[in-house]
């Protein structure tokens, strides 16, 4: 394995980590606000707060890690993506900022303030849309090189069906992921009302998730045939992902084994996400930037890998401790401590 592949694999894994935990987090914020609106907050708020509180700050770090690592391993991405993404990413930053701080304001400062919860829930739903634009742009066709500088073609971007499919997928998937996880969590907390409600949400959001996911593969055929062909080379990953999806829905439908249902979902998204990533190879930005011409020098790459391994030695045990104390601690989950 070359350092380039190692670098992008590590970053892709962190992005996947962010995708899962941020989905749970954003979705939880949305369900919380929605339950306030429909008068069901008694059922959901406790379960959601108990999960979110100790991990909200950690979620953010996954994202920071991804973009700092990206600049480190592939400094040229700063030039291409930095110049073109000013507007969409600035929007995402503003939403993240409002969301993060209002969460803290609500949880630690003014408990029960409904306005904060609504802002928080709404921001979480728009966020994936502004972040997923990056994925659309990476497919190529939206950036023109003018005088040697990349310029984003907003009109093409907004009129492209691909853009909107990816936006819809990101929102549907986040609500689906979040609902499945929270069903499991609520069930562990021995809270039958919350479990039942969240199970319902999970089933509702499973359908748009799988439809848009399939639709995007189809749209790529017209937009980026080269990528489409490579996707087909890895058809078995997507087929397996589809099977896991069916497994999750079946378990939810039968009301059994919610833990397994979540891990099947995890596998489903992992396969689809890595399948998509691998088929994107070797481009970081089609067709301007590949993995190889954007890679940093040898000395920096080695230094980053060493720092990364040392960092993980510190992080993995700490993360394990965090999960054991909150996510997998029976007494904490049930609200006794």
């Amino acid at each position: 394995m070359t350092l380039e592949i190692l670098g992008i694999s590590v970053l892709w894994t962190f992005l996947f980590g962010y995708l899962i935990i941020a989905s749970i987090d954003f979705g939880a914020g949305f369900f919380n606000a929605y339950s306030l609106l429909t008068g069901k907050e008694r059922i959901l708020t406790n379960v959601i707060q108990r999960y979110l509180s100790p991990v909200w700050e950690v979620t953010n770090v996954f994202l920071v890690f991804f973009f700092v690592g990206m600049i480190g391993f592939f400094p040229s991405t700063a030039f291409y993506y930095g110049t073109t993404l000013l507007v969409p990413v600035s929007f995402a930053i503003i939403l993240l900022a409002i969301r993060g701080s209002y969460y803290a304001f609500e949880t630690y400062g003014a408990r029960g303030h409904k306005g904060y919860s609504f802002v928080y829930g709404a921001a979480g739903l728009i966020l994936p849309a502004s972040l997923s634009i990056v994925l659309t742009i990476s497919e190529g066709g939206f950036i023109d090189m003018i005088d040697g500088n990349p310029v984003l073609d907003y009109k093409a971007l907004f009129l492209s069906p691909l853009t909107w499919s990816i936006v819809v997928l990101s929102v549907a998937a986040l609500l689906y992921i979040s609902a499945v996880f929270l069903t499991w969590y609520a069930n562990k907390a021995k809270d039958p009302d919350a479990t039942e409600l969240l199970r319902k949400y999970a089933l509702i959001w499973s359908l748009p998730t799988i439809i848009t996911a399939g639709g995007i593969i189809w749209e790529l055929r017209a937009h980026n045939p080269e990528h489409y062909d490579r996707l087909l080379d890895f058809w078995w990953m997507f087929a397996l992902s589809g099977l896991l999806f069916l497994g999750t829905v079946w378990l939810l439908w039968k009301r059994r084994n919610y833990g397994l249902a979540f891990w099947l979902l995890f596998g489903q998204f992992a396969l689809a996400f890595y399948g998509y990533g691998i088929s994107h190879y070797p481009y970081l930005l089609y067709p301007h930037l590949t993995l190889y011409d954007g890679f940093t020098n040898q000395a920096m790459a080695t230094a980053l890998v060493v720092a990364f391994i040392l960092g993980l030695l510190l992080l993995v045990p700490s993360l394990y401790l965090l999960l054991r104390m909150f996510l997998f601690d029976k007494d904490y989950v049930k609200g006794r401590k």
Binding site: V58, V64, V68, I71, A307, S318
Partner: peptide, 27 residues
């Protein structure tokens, strides 16, 4: 950033580790 990323990405990267470490234990 394209230029500096070549030379100074290491401490930038280490900063996120320090921040990660703090976030976990503060929680």
């Amino acid at each position: 950033m394209e230029l500096a990323g070549q030379v100074i990405a290491l401490p930038l990267f280490m900063e996120t580790f320090a921040f990660f470490f703090e976030a976990i234990f503060l929680g």
